[in-house]
Design a protein around this nucleic acid. Structure first.
Ligand code: MN
Ligand code: MN
Ligand code: ZN
Ligand code: ZN
Lengths: 140, 140
DNA sequence: ACTGATACTGATAATCACTCTCAGTTACGG
DNA sequence: CCGTAACTGAGAGTGATTATCAGTATCAGT
């Protein structure tokens, strides 16, 4: 049994995240780069600003950003890809031809009531990805 | 430059998939087991029927089954999990509490017309996963 | 029933994506 | 300033998946 606690509950976030040059470099590299990226690509770009940057720090920073919904792991695809995300509820349009990811606010998930009635399921969140051909690739 | 070809186009599927005892063992293990499973679990179960089965063959068979939509890699989660799927269009209700995956035919993706009008995007397919609490876990 | 082309197999090495460890460093509230 | 908890990089470690390759088995065509 663990020692009893006074503080509410052990949240596994640090009490306060520090602003370090390494984290800034990673965040900047994400801001400047394309919407979707692999960790290796990001690492390379971030190192241009912070050459001594370690790969572990990149992963640690990605985890922080994921918790604030600033990025999202890209589901489909051959694993190991992230997408920079705008705040707010949205979904992704993924081009099968060029790979670009576009955000859309269009959302038509099954209603909570329907899910509860038909399946006894209480939904909390959902993820929708649409695959197809983007405007640019359709033109070409 | 490659040698010119007479056959239509080099599809990357074999001309004809062979029915081997190893593949049967893997398929049987999937049929009999729970809807979602890891590769390691599947490997163990399939080996009870085909003890000399190699792990590589399991992966190769999973890939074949994925191409026919008989299984689907489970998006969320720490990778390395598959779900046995019924034929036909459907989506997944994933319980955050017990991890079970339930299928639903409920589907309300944005319409093709709306996607085209608002984003110039021509959808071909989509994937929807709903996270929440299943009936059983709600009861408990 | 043969048989040959080629799909398939298991063992094992190799790769990949990520995580852990730890000793030294740094940000920052007080 | 200072103290301390958070953070860092290097590199070892891990677990999952893929590649290699020499031997084997399936099955379409006879
Ligand atoms: Mn939505
Ligand atoms: Mn659907
Ligand atoms: Zn495109
Ligand atoms: Zn449940």
């Amino acid at each position: 049994m663990a020692h009893p606690r006074k503080t509410p509950d052990p949240v596994d976030l640090p009490q306060r995240a520090r602003l370090t040059p390494q984290r800034l470099a990673v965040v900047e590299a994400i801001r400047r780069g394309p919407r979707s990226f692999t960790v290796a690509e990001l690492y390379d770009r971030a190192r241009r600003q912070e050459p001594k940057l370690g790969l572990a720090t990149v992963y640690r920073t990605l985890e922080l950003l994921r918790r604030t919904d600033a990025i999202r792991p890209l589901a489909g695809s051959p694993r190991a890809e992230y997408v920079r995300c705008s705040p707010g509820h949205h979904h992704h349009l993924i081009c099968l031809s060029c790979g670009t990811v576009e955000e859309t606010e269009l959302c038509a998930a099954p209603s909570d009531a329907e899910l509860r009635r038909r399946h006894g399921f209480a939904p909390e969140s959902h993820e929708l990805d649409v695959y197809g051909t983007c405007a640019e690739c359709r033109a070409a």
